[in-house]
Design a protein around this nucleic acid. Structure first.
Lengths: 195, 195, 195, 195
DNA sequence: AATGAATGAGCCTTCATTCAT
DNA sequence: AATGAATGAAGGCTCATTCAT
């Protein structure tokens, strides 16, 4: 019995289903049937709402990024300097983000982005925003050139720790991941003082 | 015109073709037809030599790792301490390894490894070997605990820089990648003195 | 033009098509394409309804057995003793069952049953039921041991006549087949009196 | 190192391999590769000696029939009347013939004969010869019409018992099979006396 | 005599997508 | 709004067969 206002609910359910399917399978080659099944619908319904598989996957990635963006905004609100950077780091490894499911989906989208211009654009926008965020907090603490390098280092470390945890069994170890990045930050801050 | 002793040549050609196809497509979902075509054969021939697609892809990954392993061994021969570590870093970003094709294949295999136990095993063996290598060189320079952490940081940075370059257009920038990791190493070495 | 409620119709059409194809070819190695074509569909449709070729073939055999079972039940209703046995014999050689198409399919399934546990189970269930039926009617007419032997003899004769008719051209000769088995029965009945 | 006079040995080895493969698989759809492997050769070699798969299979069936024919001739030599018939029956269920392997191959060839005219011809020739043999022995014992019917009954029983044993697990029970056919014969003989 | 090399043809199966209901 | 029905297209894989050596 079709109800009014079902559209956003359906879309959301399908997106969640897609992320769950991708996370579980560890790659984007999940079937529309599988996704639709998890979302309590049929493949035809998924097409009805998203047009094509590619669009659904794109929406799923956008959803993941949006969630992360929201978490980041909330976490850094009112903070500046080193505290702000620490907050950014912590969000990336928060229980909500640093889950096997999200890690796997993230990685899968990264791979797919090499082929899909729209996905690549999406990921780049996020990367740029993260970079801005880091730079904004780092600039008062060190010279511009070093700030840029530090931002790049932090981002690379975060990505590297994500990919490395994708291969490990069991729950990812957020604490040591955070410690590693914080250490890097501390060295940079300490090092710049002595430079 | 069938000739004798073709097996090693064919196998090599097919492996190269697979890497090339994967690198170009940015993912493992290439067809046997495509691979075989690039390798100058037919899909049936590829099956003849490798049994199944999975085996061919596995062999391709093993080949990439073997090449990297050989390069590493040659690079570190006779070196120790910081020089040894620098050599390891440089090899990872050498023109032969840090190519779009190899970067993309690497990433694709990383993703697939989440599903394929045999691939995961392969990648883990390599990761462990790299870790041993780094630890061996770091141990004389710092306390054991910090050496472990440093090795993990270097490895994460390398992986992170690989994945980040997968999203960039054009030729990857090896120089700045190396600089970033070397910086990290230098900080760790300097920092340990002051700790 | 897809209509609703097609499933039972399609399934039936495909099963009939399978039996027809198998009967014509004289073996189970018919293609899904052939079956689907006869059934007015595509191979994909056949998979949609049956999952896999094996399942379709299994369903076809089950259908043949179900039809035979129904015919048998109707034929023996209310009969007992020799009349019941005669009815059983006649059903096996009735125009509906003793057709080249069905004979060939039967034989093909018999062969396949050596490899397929599920098919073997199916055929065994039928064989056991036929045996029970025969025994039930024979027991009042002769000692238990001889009843068992007679049942086995009748079953073997029926199977033997089926297989022998598979090799003959033209329409199978039901009348003489029935006469042969009835003769055997008469001898057993008469013979037991003199034993 | 190719030797002179290898041809008959190779052919025989390949035929044995074919029978073994067919018997084990329970059907004719064995691969040339499998057969050749068992026979200690390559598929190309099998083609070299037999031309095509069909020819090899045909030769295998002919070999089985020839062996059976030889056994029969030896068994009936010097015998006549009921003893001759008993001998024929016993040969059919002798340890050499009534083996799972041979039973399965026999059945598989029976099925294939529906499609292959040459195989059908082969089997028919054998059937006719068996019939002649039985008739020759039966004629002195009963009227022509009944002799014909008895011969057909015996043949049907034998075939039926073969096919029924194909479905059973474990070693076939020759003793009870022989008893069943002998019983039938005895009934016919006894019955004709009282007719 | 014997085989490694190679392939064309074919089959089962999957899946995104469309369409009528 | 939602779905059962249906399919075209494509892919992995097998295998009998051929050919040069």
């Amino acid at each position: 019995m079709p109800k009014i206002g079902m559209e956003p609910l359906r879309r959301r359910a399908l997106i969640d289903a897609a992320i769950s399917a991708i996370g579980e399978r560890g790659s984007l080659d999940v079937t529309m049937s599988d996704i639709a099944g998890r979302g309590g619908g049929t493949p035809a319904l998924a097409h009805h709402y998203f047009g094509a598989k590619e669009d659904l996957l794109f929406s799923a990635m956008r959803h993941i990024l949006a969630e992360l963006g929201r978490d980041l905004r909330e976490a850094v609100a009112g903070l500046s300097g080193a505290a702000r950077i620490s907050a950014i780091i912590e969000v990336n490894f928060s229980p909500k983000q640093f889950r096997p499911e999200i890690i796997a989906a993230w990685l899968a989208f990264y791979v797919e982005a090499q082929r899909s211009p729209s996905l690549r654009r999406l990921l780049r926008i996020y990367a740029r925003r993260l970079n801005s965020n880091l730079l904004f907090a780092l600039r008062p603490l060190m010279p511009a050139a070093e700030a840029a390098r530090t931002a790049e280092g932090i981002a690379a470390l975060v990505d590297g720790l994500y990919i490395r945890h994708a291969l490990k069994d069991g729950a990812p170890d957020a604490a040591s991941a955070i410690a590693l990045v914080e250490d890097y930050l501390a060295l940079r801050l300490g090092g710049s003082r002595h430079a």
